[in-house]
Every structure is written in C-alpha cells, then in structure tokens.
Design a protein around this nucleic acid. Structure first.
Lengths: 256, 256
DNA sequence: TTGCTCCTCACGTCACGTGAGGTGGC
DNA sequence: TTGCTCCTCACGTCACGTGAGGTGGC
C-alpha cells in the first residue's frame, strides 16, 4: 500500500499527472488512509504503467480511458493503429530534421528545384544580385498564386536560356535598371527583345508563351512592386510598338 | 501581393495559424488593401516557411521569434541543438513503439527481468495461479517502495529456488492456503520451514536474509492484505517458536 | 520545531481550433 | 443573389504545471 509519490516514481510520472488521471477517470481512486492520503496497490501500479506507455505514445487520455475499459480484442487492434501512427511520426520527424538542415543552406527551401537551379545559373552568368533576389521573390509569389503556372513558366524560361541571344538580352535588361530613362540604348534593347520574341514564336509554333505574354522583367516589376525609371521607359516603348506579342496586360497597381 | 489564404496554402499551414503568428509577433503584419484584407509579399512567404519548418520541429513559438530576430551565428548554433533534440525524440518514439508492443505481451512490462523469469519458473513448478498473481503484485509493490531491496530479494529468492527442499516447502505453503487452520500438517510445515531457514543461515553465513526476516508468504499476505485462516495460523506458530530467526515484525494493518 | 509528503481548489500555459457575427468582391 | 474569402473578438481544448493555503507524520 504505497503513497502517491512512490507510485508516481515507480511508474516514472509526476504526482500531478497521477492526480490528473484520477480526475479524468483513467485511474481508479484507491482507498485513503486515516490522514486522507491515497494508498495504492499493485493493480494501480500496473494500470499507471499502462497509462504512461500509451500516453507517451501520444494516445489522447480520452482514448486511453476507452481502451483500458474495452475488450482485449479492441485493445489489440488499437495497439496496431497506434504503432502505425508512431511509425508515421518518426518519418515526419526524420523529414523535419532534413528540413531544418535545409534552413542552414537557405534559399533552396522556398522555391522549386528547377527555380533554385535557374537562380544559380543566373548568378553564374553574371546577373546582378539585386535581379536574382527579385527573380526569387517573383517565383515565390507566383508559386503561391498558381503552382502549375509557375512550373510551366520555369520550363519555358530554362528553355529560353539555352539561347545565347536571350542570355545577352537578359543581361542588358539587368543592366538597364540603372540607366537613365533617356538612354539611347533603351529603344535598341526594346527592339532587339521584340525581334527575339517574334523569332521564338516562329520557332516553337506557340501562340503565346509566358515570356511573350508579359516579359519577365515586367512580371518582376509589377508583381513585386519594384521598378526603375529606365524599366518603366522600356515598358512604355514596348506598349507603343505595333500590335503583336506586345499587347501587355494593364499594369496592376503599384500599391503593394 | 497575395491573400492570407494563398499564403497559408503555399506554406502548408492554416489561416488561423498565420493570424496566430501575427498575434505572437513572429510574422510581420503586411499592408492591407482597401477592404482591410492582408496582402503578402515574397518576404512573408519566406518567413512563414521558416516558421513552419521550425514549428514542425517542435521549437516553441517564443523561441522561433528569438531565432528569426537573432544573428545568423546564433541561428546556426540553435539549429544544431534543435537537430539533436529531434534525434532524441525519434529515439524516444522508437522506444515508445517497443513498449506498446510490450503491452500486447502483458506482464513482463511491470516487473524486472529477473522477477518475470522467476514467475515463469513458479508456473513451471506447478505453483497455483493465485499465488503467482500474489507474488507478482508483491514484487511490483516492493519495487515501488525500494528498487534496491527488490533486486536483492529476488537474487536471494532465485538462489533459494536452486534448493529442492525450498521448492517443496514453497509448494506446501502454496497448498496450505486452503487448509483448515486446525490441519495437523501446519505445525509440521512450520517446523520444516524453520529447519530449512536455520540450515541456510549456517550455509551462507548470513546474519539475516530477506527470506529469514519475513518469509515470503508473510510479505505477500501482509503487504497485499490477503491471507487465509491457515496462513494466519502458520504465522502464529512461527511467532510462538523459540527465539531466533523467527522474530517477525509486527503485522501491518490489514486495512488496505 | 523543521522538513517532507500529502491534500484540494483555481488559475496558467501552449498552439492553435471553433464558432459568432459581420463585411466585401464575383 | 449566392458562395467564397476575408475580418475581429472571445472562448474552448489538451495535458498537465504552478502556485496558494493548509494538514499530518518523523
């Protein structure tokens, strides 16, 4: 006939936990001695160890109560289910470990594999850190709006990057961010981009690709709300060109 | 500039969780649109993914807040600690799986290895299920009172069981539970037990062993509060024997 | 007498979940 | 107009933990 402290120590739980199990009706109340202290027997110790094992396996106390009251067959079935859940949990924790390891590395976590590879290629080509950051943010936003469109667009983009002319234009757009809006190179760049887009349309037979629809610099500028006077000017030149692939959508508000 | 629903879906959390992170100061409040809706940018998506990864690794939100605000060095150190904790947790879940598997088997969970083996030997010797149950309960209680004494006593008991005479006496005690208190075999059994105990004392040179101190049937009877008229009579006979190893402690109350 | 164990409320904590009651865009 | 998404309180949940204020045995 042991006290609550000894019982708790034996089972490896706290005294508060034992009292909590009484309150919840999981563990039967033992008789009291003359001072009102609870006095436990071996049957309580057995029950408490069972409760602890199930509780540590993450079984809700309400479920434990049911299980202890139910028949052995139901109990055995439940044990299998609990085991399966534990297995799953272990798997999830393993994944959690991998992901927090990824937090060290950083950026690869927030974009798809393809986008991460793409951003690395941009860096290798000498694209500015500022533009790479903007690309990354754009892809993150785009994926949050539509993962499917993002997947399609990145495939398109990677394909275009196979073309040295596209790479050259891209690098010029990158530099153009800092140009003055009156820079004579702007109309030349705009025309070069237009010709490339038309040529690509002919080659791929596509009615419209994501690159043609909007132009990536534009997507970046409008979706993330960052632009420069020179880029704005580039957009204006594009808008004023003869009809064709240059029918850009109305610019979203720059408020965000 | 995406809504709370899109952001939550992208990061794989609930809308309620996002709002909770705002309230707790983990995630900065984005600007509102004209309807008062929150409008998020890529930086929020990045933050939210970080928060989710840390939260799923079991890091308290208050700690996550600290980490996101702190310097990268502290962050890297914390990541290592978190990883160590996860590793530990996985190990604990693996143990939990083993233990709930043990719940199927049953009794071995609640007593030590030695006691479990001992109880199996009792069954093999033909000891009644009733007495085995009582032994088990006694060992559980004893271990909850004093694990060291329980370990010493089981070693002593296993040693005694190596002696065929002890086994014979034990089996007689077992049967005696149902005898009438006036049964003529009782004094004979008491005397046989006395002689065995004295002989053992001579052989082992021990001043007093746990078996001599109390006698196991007595421990069972008094600690678990179960006895029979014949066992009570056996105790009375032992008490009336000449001084020596038979000085038994005063019987605890039978109230429990 | 001091220290330790026990007792019973009652409220706190942690990370959200669950409505209630309402508004705004398609 | 209906359905969907968003908004802000306020309270609930789960498994205890944390005192507060007190008693009882060595």
């Amino acid at each position: 006939m042991v006290t609550i402290g000894r019982l708790a120590a034996y089972a490896g739980v706290t005294i508060k936990a034992v009292r909590h199990y009484h309150k919840r009706g999981l563990l039967s109340e033992p008789p009291r001695d003359s001072s009102g202290y609870r006095r436990y027997g071996a049957e309580h110790a057995v029950q408490l160890v069972k409760i602890r094992i199930l509780a540590e396996a993450g079984v809700p106390l309400s479920r434990i109560k049911e299980l202890l009251a139910g028949d052995p067959e139901t109990f055995a079935t439940a044990i299998s289910e609990i085991d399966a859940k534990l297995k799953k949990q272990i798997e999830e924790l393993r994944l959690a470990r991998e992901r927090i390891a990824g937090l060290r590395e950083g950026d690869r976590l927030f974009v798809s594999e393809e986008v991460a590879d793409y951003l690395e290629r941009l860096a290798a080509f000498g694209v500015s850190a500022r533009t790479i950051q903007r690309e990354r943010d754009g892809w993150i936003l785009l994926r949050s709006v539509s993962p499917e469109r993002a997947a399609g667009m990145i495939a398109d983009k990677l394909d275009a990057f196979g073309d040295p002319e596209f790479r050259a234009i891209y690098l010029d757009f990158d530099s153009a961010f800092d140009w003055s809006p009156g820079d004579p190179r702007l109309p030349i760049l705009a025309d070069r981009a237009r010709r490339w887009i038309e040529g690509r349309r002919g080659r791929t037979g596509q009615k419209s690709s994501s690159l043609v629809d909007a132009g990536f610099a534009r997507l970046m500028a409008t979706s993330y709300g960052v632009s420069s006077p020179a880029w704005d000017q580039l957009n204006r030149i594009a808008r004023d060109m003869p009809a064709g692939p240059h029918k850009l959508p109305a610019p979203p508000s720059r408020s965000g």
